[in-house]
Design a binder for these strands. Structure first.
Lengths: 182, 182
DNA sequence: CCTCAAGTGGACGCAGTGTCCGCTTGAGTC
DNA sequence: GACTCAAGCGGACACTGCGTCCACTTGAGG
């Protein structure tokens, strides 16, 4: 059965309020209570849908990540299939840094506990990179995939940018890395 | 003035109890109350010295890290000065993985919030790696240093080992990386 | 208009945090 | 050995955020 009208309205209010709070204050400073109040909704209603902050952040990210995943699988080269592995990895890095730049507070919010590696998204990125590493004939692509993804950790990104390093510079360094390794 | 005898005794009891709890249960499952009780000490006493779990974990790690830092600065090659940058980085990776292997729960415990990058230790590792990158003539060693340290994130290490990847394999992959990049 | 399941929201109990302050104790002094 | 007093101690307290529960409300189909 489809979602009831009031339920859909509340879901939208919750997501809008949460996105606003996450990006203005930073995920760590936002409580479930804050989100409920900002959305004009009771705590119970909030918990009915989302068991914790991470779930909300994941829901918010979902759309953006899906879009990139789609492009990786079926888009044009160099992001999509067709280009040599090194170029595809470089393009992937660029896209991910852009994603981080726009949504770092959300990505960080999604990582309550140490959930980063257990979300479906990490698995996807990991598989993608491992396949590229394999195609380039790298030794131990399984471990290399994790290593290549590590510099995209949102905490690191925020640390670097807060220290004054521009996303472009990070992006460039990663592209350089990609061409050297694959 | 020196520390009073009872104070020193309590500090030792606290550190011993905390190390035990951190390693057996995992840092996230340990409360300040737990540590105080296990150490046979009041909460007030605990807070007097350590404002939070992170401070305790940092204190516990301090000794081990100092030893490695000492070797990096003044020890024999390839860890210490003298060897070519790539070899020094490879040796550094090996040493760090070993450190993680022995003390990952502590390292993780030290990272309440996103303190990893603000501790003195991170700054030290970062400087060390940046100097190596510079010596090898790498482009943008400043950013590269962060990138090269990223795969040593304790969350990643724990994730990899819990998935069945042996520390030796991680270590080998990182050494390979070092020789390819510098 | 009626029914009733889906949906709502706030009150409640709990766990952990960090502070405060009256009591205790160690270490110099005579 | 007794005295002093600052350093040290520890438990009580107030507070914040979490997650649940259940009596009430509301939307949609009959």
């Amino acid at each position: 059965m489809p979602e009831r009208a009031d339920a859909a309205r509340n879901r939208a209010k919750i997501l809008a309020a949460a996105e606003e709070l996450f990006t203005t204050r930073g995920a760590a400073e936002v409580t479930m209570e804050d989100i409920a109040r900002a959305a004009g909704v009771g705590r119970g209603t909030l918990y009915r849908r989302y068991p914790d902050r991470a779930a909300i952040a994941v829901a918010l990210l979902d759309e953006h990540e899906r879009r990139l995943q789609e492009v990786l699988l079926r888009g044009d080269p160099p992001l999509g299939p067709g280009a040599p592995p090194a170029e595809r990895l470089a393009a992937f890095y660029t896209a991910m840094v852009e994603l981080l730049e726009r949504h770092a507070p959300l990505v960080l919010g999604a990582e309550v506990g140490h959930s980063r590696f257990t979300t479906g998204a990490y698995g996807f990125w990991r598989t993608h990179v491992r396949v590229l590493a394999e195609a380039a004939g790298a030794a131990d692509p399984d471990v290399l995939a994790d290593v290549l993804l590590a510099p995209l950790a949102p905490e690191l990104f925020l640390h670097q940018t807060s220290r004054g390093t521009s996303p472009d510079r990070i992006s460039a360094a990663l592209r350089h890395l990609a061409t050297q390794l694959l």
